[in-house]
Amino acid sequence: MVTPKFRRVILKLSGEALAGQKGYGIDPDVVNSIARQIKDIIELRVQLAIVVGGGNIWRGISGSTKGMDRATADYMGMLATVINSLALQDALEKHDVDTRVQTAIEMRAVAESYIRRRAIRHMEKGRVVIFAAGTGNPYFSTDTTAALRAAEIEAEIILMAKQVDGVYEADPLKNRNARKFDELSYIEVLNRGLQVMDSTAVSLCMDNQIPLLVFNLNEEGNIKRAILGERIGTFVGGELND
C-alpha cells in the first residue's frame, strides 16, 4: 500500500464545484465523482474532514449587495452549506464511506452539532466529518471555516479544490498568458491580493502555520495525488518536504 504524506486533512470544496457545468444546484455526477475519490483516500487510512461552501445555491454577499440585511443573507448561505453537506454525505454513504455531518448551527433533526472532540473521535474511527453552516456567525466565509476547523482539529494541510489547476497572477480564463505559481508564501498571497482564500482565512492559516494546496478538482484522482504529496497545483505556506 502506498503511504500518504498527510494523515489528517481538511478538504475545502466550493459550492460551485458541486454544480458542475450546470452552474447552479447540485450535479449528482460531480458529487459521485468526489465521493469515489474520497473513498480512495479513506482506504489509505487518512483522517478527513470536509468544509463545503454554498455558492451553488446562495451567496450571502450577493444578497447583501442587493439590499438584504447582511447577517440574514449570511445565515441563508449557511443553510445552503447544510444542503450541500447532506448531499455529499448521501453520496459518500452510497460508496460505503461512514460519514457524519456536524453543523455550527444546531439542527439536531438532520445533523450533529459541532463538537471538536467528537469530530476528532469520528475521524480517528475512520469516519469522514463534514463541517456545515460555516462558523455559525455572519460575516465569516467558509474559507475562514476551513482555516478555523483545521486549527482546531490540528489538520496537517488544507486541500483547496478549485475549478483551475492552481493559483495564477490573473484569471487564466480571461488571460491565457497569466503565470501559474508553483509555490507561494502567505505574505505573497496577501500582498498580491491573490484569490486563494479571503484575507481573514489566509491570516489564520499563517498564524497557525497551516499549509494550503490549491489544485484542480475536475481532474479525477487529484485528491489522492494531493494526499500522497505529489507536486500538483500551487502550494502555499513554505517548501514541500521531500
Rank of each mutant, 00 (worst) to 15 (best):
R7C: 05
V9Q: 10
E16W: 04
A17R: 00
G23A: 07
I26E: 08
V31D: 00
V31Y: 02
Q37D: 15
I38T: 02
D40P: 03
E43W: 13
V46F: 12
G53C: 02
G53V: 02
G53R: 00
G54E: 04
G54T: 03
N56S: 01
W58P: 05
S64M: 15
D74P: 10
G77A: 14
A80N: 11
T81F: 02
I83G: 06
N84T: 00
N84S: 00
S85E: 11
L88W: 08
L92Q: 01
M107L: 14
S113P: 10
S113Y: 13
R116A: 07
I120R: 08
E124Y: 04
G126Y: 00
G136L: 04
P138S: 06
S141M: 12
T145Y: 07
A155V: 08
D165G: 14
V167L: 11
V167N: 07
Y168H: 04
A170L: 11
A170Y: 12
L184Q: 02
E188P: 13
L190K: 07
N191G: 07
N191E: 11
G193F: 10
Q195P: 13
M197I: 05
N208M: 08
I210F: 05
L212P: 09
T234G: 06
F235R: 12
V236I: 07
E239F: 14
